[in-house]
Computed example of a mutant assay.
Amino acid sequence: MTTPTFNRLSLPSNDNVNPYVFCVDLDGQWFTQKGKMIAYYGQIRFEALSAGPLDALVAAHFHSPLYAHDWIVAQGRGKLLLADRGFDVNSYDLTDGNLTVRAGNLLAFEPGLDLKQSIIPGFLTLIGTGRFIAASNGPVHFVEPPIRVDPQALLGWADCPSPCHHYDHGYMRGVLGMARSLFGVGGTSGEEHQFDFTGQGTVLMQSSETVMDTDTMLRDLEGQIGMLGVGGLQRLQSVIAQRLASERQ
């Protein structure tokens, strides 16, 4: 089997180069997550969201301060190649849509879409009309509610109410389970904790579980700490101290 060699003319336009790389035919601006660009042809520059000339664009379309440092704007004309850790990469089109996706899996989106911070930690919501690029650990499957989904297998959901957390009795037992329940995140198996979807809409699942990276998990926790009062902070401090003591044994 011969491996194809691409150039700026033979690369596809707004399509996959292979299952793991997507080529954006850039003519204007796209929001892109840092570290997801692997190569480009043409005259393209990358600007932080804090750049003065981007104030109007960011104010109109980017509404997630918790993740602002993870994103940049690619602007210019050329071919922009996106990939993510060898995961499957696909594009999705929204038309007056409302779709929530795992923050770490969202690679890029057109400015026609507005990005907002989801009420569910670790997820972002895209609203409007346009295209976005997302990565998944294996092929994506689309299912309808009612369904309960393993948190690590959940990629996102579209046009349906946000899910509820479902915990079994074993998950709720113990101090560590108590800390997890405060934030709605954790590294347990899907047999102990699931996202429960009801109503109309579509749920997106990836084909395997993947562990959240430490930076993303810490950012989600930091975003929730501001909601705790003095009693909650003291309780969390106690849980962390016990966990540190356990890890050092």
Results as ranks from 00 to 15, higher is better:
residue 159 D to Q: 11
residue 246 S to K: 13
residue 112 G to H: 01
residue 19 P to M: 06
residue 78 G to K: 06
residue 210 T to W: 11
residue 5 T to K: 04
residue 183 F to A: 07
residue 50 S to I: 04
residue 100 T to L: 00
residue 123 F to W: 02
residue 223 G to E: 05
residue 161 P to K: 01
residue 16 N to V: 10
residue 138 G to H: 04
residue 123 F to P: 02
residue 115 L to W: 07
residue 206 Q to I: 06
residue 21 V to A: 12
residue 247 E to A: 11
residue 2 T to L: 15
residue 239 V to K: 09
residue 20 Y to A: 03
residue 27 D to Q: 02
residue 75 Q to C: 10
residue 99 L to T: 15
residue 141 H to E: 14
residue 206 Q to V: 07
residue 142 F to N: 04
residue 20 Y to C: 01
residue 248 R to V: 09
residue 181 S to Y: 06
residue 90 N to P: 02
residue 240 I to E: 10
residue 228 L to N: 06
residue 144 E to F: 08
residue 31 F to E: 01
residue 21 V to G: 09
residue 248 R to D: 10
residue 97 G to M: 08
residue 100 T to Q: 00
residue 70 D to V: 05
residue 241 A to F: 10
residue 184 G to W: 00
residue 97 G to E: 07
residue 107 L to N: 01
residue 79 K to N: 09
residue 56 A to I: 07
residue 36 K to N: 04
residue 24 V to C: 11
residue 186 G to L: 06
residue 44 I to C: 05
residue 141 H to F: 15
residue 133 I to S: 00
residue 32 T to N: 07
residue 154 L to E: 02
residue 180 R to Y: 11
residue 195 F to S: 04
residue 183 F to H: 08
residue 171 Y to E: 02
residue 192 E to D: 15
residue 90 N to W: 11
residue 88 D to F: 10
residue 162 S to M: 06
residue 233 L to Y: 00
residue 10 S to F: 04
residue 157 W to H: 01
residue 151 P to S: 05
residue 25 D to H: 03
residue 160 C to Y: 05
residue 182 L to R: 05
residue 208 S to M: 14
residue 63 H to Q: 07
residue 149 V to L: 07
residue 159 D to N: 13
residue 176 L to A: 12
residue 99 L to I: 15
residue 99 L to R: 13
residue 10 S to C: 01
residue 199 G to F: 06
residue 79 K to G: 07
residue 23 C to N: 12
residue 75 Q to R: 14
residue 241 A to E: 12
residue 113 L to Q: 04
residue 128 G to P: 07
residue 235 R to I: 07
residue 166 H to N: 05
residue 12 P to M: 09
residue 40 Y to L: 10
residue 63 H to K: 12
residue 5 T to N: 03
residue 129 T to I: 08
residue 87 F to Q: 09
residue 68 A to H: 07
residue 178 M to R: 08
residue 48 A to M: 05
residue 143 V to P: 00
residue 101 V to W: 06
residue 155 L to C: 13
residue 189 S to F: 14
residue 34 K to G: 13
residue 86 G to D: 08
residue 65 P to D: 08
residue 12 P to V: 10
residue 238 S to E: 06
residue 126 L to V: 01
residue 76 G to C: 03
residue 158 A to S: 15
residue 33 Q to N: 09
residue 191 E to H: 15
residue 23 C to M: 02
residue 49 L to V: 10
residue 49 L to M: 10
residue 211 V to R: 09
residue 133 I to W: 03
residue 220 D to W: 10
residue 248 R to P: 02
residue 158 A to G: 13
residue 27 D to N: 07
residue 214 T to M: 08
residue 199 G to M: 07
residue 238 S to C: 08
residue 130 G to F: 12
residue 150 D to W: 12
residue 239 V to R: 11
residue 160 C to W: 05
residue 178 M to C: 02
residue 224 Q to I: 03
residue 22 F to A: 05
residue 80 L to Y: 02
residue 178 M to Q: 09
residue 161 P to I: 01
residue 41 Y to E: 13
residue 231 G to P: 03
residue 41 Y to R: 07
residue 15 D to G: 11
residue 77 R to T: 08
residue 32 T to Q: 04
residue 216 T to M: 12
residue 149 V to A: 02
residue 17 V to E: 00
residue 37 M to P: 04
residue 121 P to L: 06
residue 196 D to F: 10
residue 147 I to A: 11
residue 54 L to M: 13
